[in-house]
Design a protein around this nucleic acid. Structure first.
Length: 567
RNA sequence: UGGGGGUUGGUCUAGUGGCAGGACGCCGGGUUCUGGCCCCGGUAGCAAAGGUUCAAAUCCUUUACCCCCAGCCA
């Protein structure tokens, strides 16, 4: 059913337009896409955009999407990341359905293709050092110069390349380069390196190879080998497309993929680059990759975002070619939209104030029925214990209520959700400090369950927890990680994004009273604390310690009213 | 006068010669046993100038501004 809804709300984008045209022309019978992560870090919400795009397109058009690890650099890549990436992709709800590949699967084919390029005089072994190659490349405005090794014979190239492969040379001594055009205005076309010597252990091929293909060489050819039809990548690869096409034009590849570029995601008040995220982890700014403040998939998951909410978010933001900075309110909206329908309601008090019901018998207690989710009655009901002393939210009582405040105040009657109507009759204060210690109320036995038989209305409904029965929870409230919408904006002026970290991104509240039914919820369970927000049971939870993460607060129109009144 | 891209309300995004639409946000109202959800209404935009046309966000010209590229990273 969510599928049909998604279909109805799917908005077009330039990539869909291209696919529609290709299909209409009969260029392809179906489409093949791919998600090509490099296994050198954890996936983040920006990757989710790409995953949803690639897998989503395949699903919609009845094609398939390959999960292909781009593992051409053994210096940076590790098996650990492969596992986490697979986990995150599946968690997001996508199935590569057997199409799990690695660029390293094609090392032999790629090598054979390289031999072909050499034989055709389109590649040569170059002995220039890394620094020399840079010098010879020229600059943005100055054409490059041809390498003195550019004219080596095919035979010599073949021999040298074979020796490179055999491990006869040290790292950096030789590279294989495509012979294109050193004066090309696009620097990527100035005889790019396509193989380098790296005497490193590869997580999949071990020590089989000591020469490894570069991204530019491997990527398009891998696409072609897999029959990818639409190869989607981010904008910074636009400059690489001529090179992508060049290899495909030179070689007898089995299919002809096309590369299209879209704008990567930028989210406000956070950073979305592996390099920066790893810094946050390594410098201890957060507790790890899965810290709930992190924009990583595992961080968002731990924070309580559902896979559906992330998919909806990706649908919401669309796909384009212009730079954009998406507001966090979009992500929050996507989370609330899904969690409203799926998260069961429970009551918990973050900032407790004791209320004593003076006409409720001291030793009496009872269980009141509460619905688990008013948006989905199929989720059933539960019983919530009630007794003479309860906790309500400090903010739900004002001794001197402002205009438009319709919660508890001296002489006021309010409803306890699924409970009774209560009326405030007394306020007990510390004589020294004037601090409110507890509030005394009477309850109306006729209003059990929360309805008044005489039809009397009440303006406010408060959540509450029985003091005698409550269990305690550690609650973690999160705020934006940075204080600037774009923490990297002033990097060019020499400023570091770390300077803009929000010192208050985590606020922990100890021993919040929550209703006992929460005990049944295991780590990862999402719920709504009524009137407060959506929360998720953190994996730090043990039998003796309950930890809740606030995913996102509920919208709070009273807070806005109050804010406005304050001016 | 190196090359490649981009510019539609505060934000994201449709529209590719025919009434600039949707979403988020914000504002107002209705409803309500969550000041939530839901419903209704409102706010606000084609970077600029010129041209073609009955008609231009869309086609042409010029201008401005922004982003990316000089790894043996991806």
């Amino acid at each position: 059913m969510s599928m049909t809804k998604a279909k109805e709300t799917t908005v077009s984008n330039f990539i869909r337009t291209i696919i529609d045209e290709d299909l209409a022309k009969g260029k392809h019978e179906t489409i093949v896409t791919r998600f090509p992560p490099e296994p050198n870090g954890y996936l983040h919400i920006g990757h989710a955009k790409s995953i949803c795009l690639n897998f989503g397109l395949a699903l919609d058009y009845g094609g398939h999407c390959n999960l292909r690890f781009d593992d051409t650099n053994p210096l940076k890549e590790e098996e650990e990341y492969v596992a986490s990436i697979k986990e995150d992709v599946s968690w997001l709800g996508y199935d590569w359905d057997g199409h799990l590949n690695y660029a390293s699967d094609y090392f032999q084919d790629l090598y054979t293709y390289a031999l072909r390029l050499i034989e055709d005089g389109k590649a040569y072994v170059c002995s220039l050092s890394q620094e020399e190659i840079r010098e010879y490349r020229g600059t943005l405005k100055v054409p490059g110069r041809e390498s003195p090794y550019r004219k080596r014979s095919v035979r010599e190239n073949l021999e040298l390349f074979e020796q490179m492969r055999c491990g006869a040379f040290p790292e950096g001594s030789y590279v294989l380069r495509a012979r294109i055009d050193m004066a090309h205005p696009n620097l990527n076309m100035r005889d790019p390196v396509i193989y380098r010597i790296l005497k490193a252990y590869h997580h999949r091929t071990g020590d089989t190879w000591c020469i490894y293909p570069t991204y530019d060489y491997a990527h398009g050819l891998s696409d072609a080998l897999e029959g990818v039809t639409h190869s989607l990548c981010s904008l910074e690869f636009e400059d690489h497309r001529p090179l992508y096409d060049w290899f495909l034009d030179q070689l007898p590849v089995p299919s002809r993929p096309r590369q299209y570029e879209f704008a990567r995601l930028n989210l406000g008040y956070t950073v979305l680059s592996k390099r920066k995220l790893i810094q946050l982890v390594q410098k201890g700014c957060v507790r790890g990759w899965d810290d709930p403040r992190m924009p990583t998939i595992c961080g968002l998951r731990r924070r309580g975002f559902s896979a559906a909410s992330i998919r909806n978010f990706c649908e919401l933001i669309g796909v384009g070619k212009s730079y954009s900075l998406v507001d966090m309110s979009m992500l929050e909206h996507a989370a609330r939209e899904d969690l409203n329908k799926t998260a069961s309601r429970v009551m918990g008090v973050l900032d407790p104030l004791k209320v004593v019901l003076i006409n409720y018998p001291e030793d009496q207690e009872e269980e009141l029925e509460a619905v688990n989710n008013p948006e989905d009655l199929a989720m059933g009901v539960r019983r919530v214990p009630f007794s003479r002393e309860i906790y309500i939210e400090q903010d739900d009582f004002r001794e001197d209520p402002p205009r438009k405040y319709f919660r508890l105040a001296p002489g006021r009657e309010v409803r306890l959700r699924y409970g009774y109507y209560i009326t405030c009759v007394d306020v007990i204060k510390d004589e020294q400090t004037g601090e409110i210690l507890e509030v005394h109320c009477t309850f109306d036995p006729e209003t059990r369950g929360g309805d008044s038989p005489d039809g009397r209305k009440v303006k406010g409904t408060l959540h509450w927890v029985s003091a005698r029965h409550c269990i305690r929870a550690e609650v973690r409230l999160y705020d934006r990680l940075f204080v600037r919408p774009d923490p990297t904006a002033d990097e060019k002026e020499g400023s570091d994004f770390m300077e803009h970290l929000n010192p208050d991104s985590l606020r922990t509240i100890e021993s919040c009273p929550v209703e006992p039914s929460i005990r049944e919820m295991g780590p990862g369970t999402r719920c709504q604390l009524e009137r407060k927000g959506y929360f998720c049971v953190d994996p730090d939870t043990t039998p003796g310690r309950l930890v809740l993460n606030r995913t996102v607060p509920l919208r709070d129109s009273w807070a806005k009213i109050e804010q406005k009144m304050k001016g």
